[in-house]
Design a binder for these strands. Structure first.
Lengths: 215, 215, 215, 215
DNA sequence: CATGAATGAGCCTTCATTCAT
DNA sequence: CATGAATGAAGGCTCATTCAT
């Protein structure tokens, strides 16, 4: 009996609560897809349901209301953000490698997940109006800031130079560059990503005290 | 008499076209108020009309559709952004004065116009989904970047040091700091503004080669 | 018990699809009533909903849009047209009986279902402007032409005379007489029906080669 | 002076009443164009005004309301109907010429003025619902019936045969053929007109006692 | 548990009509 | 006379939400 139970532990949720949470996660994921496609203002519960394999009625079984669902999907998004880019830090062994790897990762994200990321900026804007989103959005912001901080710290370490900006400023800088670039990229500006990478490189080199002369 | 008449010439629209444009501006302003209060996703034409002194029917008399109206109000917003903060540069005569003045102005804006500014971040997010907004949003971004660039250039001039980051990075940095602070401020974080100013000061001093030791 | 159950099988829809179709038919019928009362130009979905026992929201649950609903109700109408008047042909055994029976049926229809029939002329006009209606309207026209053709064929058979006009002309003739009479009847002309019947009889007798001398 | 006045008589309306009527006619004509294009149900006063050279406000100066305007345009239409096709009767000198000429004229009308004519069927349908239209529509119907009667009478005269159907039936027949053909023609049926002419010819020959054997 | 029928508030838009200028 | 600004009812339609099954 015990062994059977242990097997189940790995495969299926044991309790009703687990199943409930699992289903919420599943629906939150569907919401995420819809939000990325249409944006918060144009996202309806019916559309979300159609992006899942469930009927729209079920949404109200697992969520109190629309906001509850969106909050859940924000958390879904949050879970993904924590570890993103950490592989860059893990593998790079020189300043150049890390710089190039980081900027390349930014570029890839922009190219491959532009839709997913505009969702994030949209949700962050919603948090400015909807109190229910704020705590989670703030947490995501903190995660992202930490991620940037880890990368920049590693960079400083490799360069054997102190980091010259506070974490908030570093996050602001790269988040801002990314956000600007995202809009240009979505607008069809082909050179947007490359241009962002050039500016990003200049900034990074400056931050570790290796100024580029031709600014 | 003649002088009075001349003054009137400047105030009262002479032609029908002027009047039409004036009314559009008036309604665009009402839209701006509503957007600032409710956010794009919750803004309806009826609500906008109630924020104006007109019936909702009038909105469709002056605008083709909702997007047309919002675009108009985005431009309204744009017009205000161009010169904001320029007084700071104009009056400051030392690095400290300019730094303090700039950061104080940021703080004041956050305190006094938090609502107006969350509107901007909301609209910028909408532009990620709605093509019709992109051109104007991009223009506003450019204006704001230029504004930051003017301030930082003046700062470098006063410090007799070269500016070490590209304009895009400078804008990203301060826009990002502002955006983060705005969310915290709206969330009730009393120390958010002050903390942003501290980080901002560190960043500025670093940018002009006067590093602060205790990062 | 078994037989009762079998009867129920025929009455109660077994599947969800059946139920859906049944409700569409029900709402199409309500639309038909409204169209007959107000005419196409003044028929609104809200009015149709009030003629049913449902809220107006339900209309959009069962139909894609207004045209979809009207097309459905046109088909509802079509189904009724196919067999109308066939009893006349079935029972009459002489030229006189058939002639009288047919004209009496026309008169009865005008008296009893004037509203229902103006609907038809209205829809046929709409088809001239709205492509979506054309196929179904054309089908109804064909059904009615066939109906007239069956009656006239039987008449020719009873009279032992060939039919001297093509089907299209026969349908045109009686449809036209009916349409003219309908307008007069709705205008309050008490003698309209009788007068139509007199002219109809003259035409019929002529068609089978039994001319009436005093035209 | 007198001569000047006389010249004016020919060129401009002398009285206010004339001018008023003239303007009504002008606007009624614009309404006619719009009705032909969009159909009654989709025709708005603004659209009509845009098809004229006046502002929409002026419509309410010359007409009590929308119905008043449409009635006026119905009368406009009526005026055109009286003499249409009379040239056919005037020039034809044989049965064949008249038959061919009449059917050719019907075909030309269908080809060239399909839009204008669907308007007529639309208005006639409206009369079934809207009392205000009935008198004028009935008058137009009478005019058209007379027109058909004149043609058929002339035909009978040329054929030296009595007319075998009452006027109402003759009008019904050709109006019905025309109406059926119009729908087919608008539906893109290329052979509709020719087919109608074939059936029309059969009917005509039958009506004057020259039966076609292969019906 | 899950479905989807049903609701009704609300949205954007169109429109006939009124009226100050 | 003529204009066009302004109104507000109504239209088609979307949507979050409820609830019987």
């Amino acid at each position: 009996m015990a062994s059977i139970k242990e097997k189940q532990v790995d495969r299926v949720p044991r309790t009703r609560v687990d199943k409930f949470a699992e289903r919420r996660a599943e629906l939150g994921e569907a919401a995420l897809q819809t939000l990325a496609t249409l944006g918060y203002a144009r996202t309806s519960l019916r559309e979300i349901a159609q992006n899942s394999e469930f009927s729209h009625g079920v949404l109200h079984y697992y969520f109190n209301d629309k906001i509850d669902l969106i909050v859940c999907s924000v958390r879904q998004y949050k879970a993904r953000c924590v570890t993103r880019y950490d592989h860059v830090t893990a593998t790079a062994t020189t300043v150049d490698e890390l710089t190039t790897g980081f900027l390349a990762a930014l570029g890839d994200t922009l190219r491959d997940e532009a839709h997913m990321h505009r969702l994030w900026y949209d949700l962050r804007s919603q948090a400015l109006f909807e109190e229910a989103f704020r705590a989670d959005v703030a947490e995501i912001d903190k995660s992202l800031e930490n991620m940037i901080w880890r990368i920049m710290s590693r960079l400083a370490e490799l360069a054997d130079e102190p980091l010259r900006l506070p974490a908030s400023a570093l996050y602001a800088l790269f988040d801002g560059l990314f956000q600007q670039c995202l809009l240009k990229h979505l607008s069809g500006d082909q050179g947007a990503i490359e241009s962002m990478q050039v500016d990003g490189r200049k900034a990074i080199l400056e931050l570790i005290g290796r100024p580029v002369f031709a600014v």
